[in-house]
Amino acid sequence: MDFFNNHKKLFLSALAFFLFLTLIICILPALNNQKINRPLPGSNVSTEEEVRGKQIYIREGCVACHTQQIRNVDMDQVFGERPSIAADYARNKRISFFQNTATLMGTERTGPDLTNIGRKL
């Protein structure tokens, strides 16, 4: 019972357990996903113009109403040929060390999907 009365041992044990769980649950799966997530064959690297367009999309807050994800529901069939999959976002790179790249999935759709807007006539 000395263990529970010694606050230093208790705190260090809880911290070690937290760090161990963080490694097992968060860090190792993320590293594994980074290794196995590959772009689709035949997909192209974003052009400079597309990158600038994405920056404007983020800056203007378009993701509040529009998404860049095609769902597998009937109403989304007009927005693209197939539903979005993880490989669609494999080429995304971090903005900086502290900022992850936005995948721009959105949380709700009140405006039309803009993923394939450039393909429409």
Results as ranks from 00 to 15, higher is better:
residue 32 N to I: 12
residue 96 S to P: 00
residue 40 L to P: 02
residue 3 F to K: 04
residue 84 S to C: 00
residue 12 L to S: 06
residue 103 T to C: 13
residue 88 D to K: 07
residue 8 K to G: 02
residue 18 F to M: 13
residue 13 S to A: 14
residue 48 E to A: 08
residue 43 S to F: 03
residue 52 R to W: 11
residue 13 S to K: 08
residue 16 A to Y: 07
residue 107 T to W: 04
residue 54 K to F: 02
residue 44 N to E: 11
residue 67 T to R: 14
residue 76 D to T: 09
residue 37 N to H: 12
residue 23 L to D: 11
residue 45 V to G: 02
residue 40 L to D: 00
residue 71 R to L: 12
residue 52 R to I: 07
residue 47 T to C: 06
residue 19 L to D: 03
residue 59 R to Q: 14
residue 120 K to C: 01
residue 76 D to V: 09
residue 100 N to Q: 11
residue 67 T to H: 13
residue 119 R to E: 15
residue 80 G to S: 11
residue 86 A to E: 14
residue 89 Y to T: 01
residue 118 G to K: 03
residue 58 I to N: 13
residue 6 N to T: 04
residue 84 S to K: 08
residue 121 L to E: 12
residue 22 T to H: 15
residue 60 E to K: 12
residue 51 V to E: 07
residue 106 G to L: 09
residue 6 N to R: 08
residue 5 N to L: 13
residue 15 L to M: 06
residue 20 F to H: 15
residue 113 D to V: 08
residue 77 Q to V: 15
residue 95 I to R: 11
residue 64 A to S: 14
residue 84 S to D: 03
residue 13 S to I: 01
residue 40 L to W: 05
residue 102 A to I: 01
residue 97 F to G: 00
residue 81 E to V: 11
residue 46 S to R: 00
residue 83 P to G: 04
residue 71 R to Q: 12
residue 37 N to A: 09
residue 57 Y to P: 07
residue 2 D to A: 07
residue 46 S to K: 03
residue 105 M to C: 01
residue 115 T to I: 09
residue 108 E to G: 12
residue 50 E to G: 07
residue 111 G to L: 10
residue 37 N to I: 09
residue 35 K to W: 13
residue 119 R to A: 15
residue 46 S to D: 10
residue 48 E to P: 09
residue 38 R to A: 11
residue 73 V to I: 13
residue 98 F to H: 00
residue 104 L to G: 06
residue 107 T to L: 02
residue 82 R to L: 06
residue 59 R to K: 14
residue 56 I to T: 09
residue 6 N to Q: 06
residue 33 N to W: 12
residue 43 S to H: 07
residue 113 D to Q: 03
residue 112 P to N: 06
residue 9 K to E: 08
residue 111 G to I: 01
residue 111 G to Y: 10
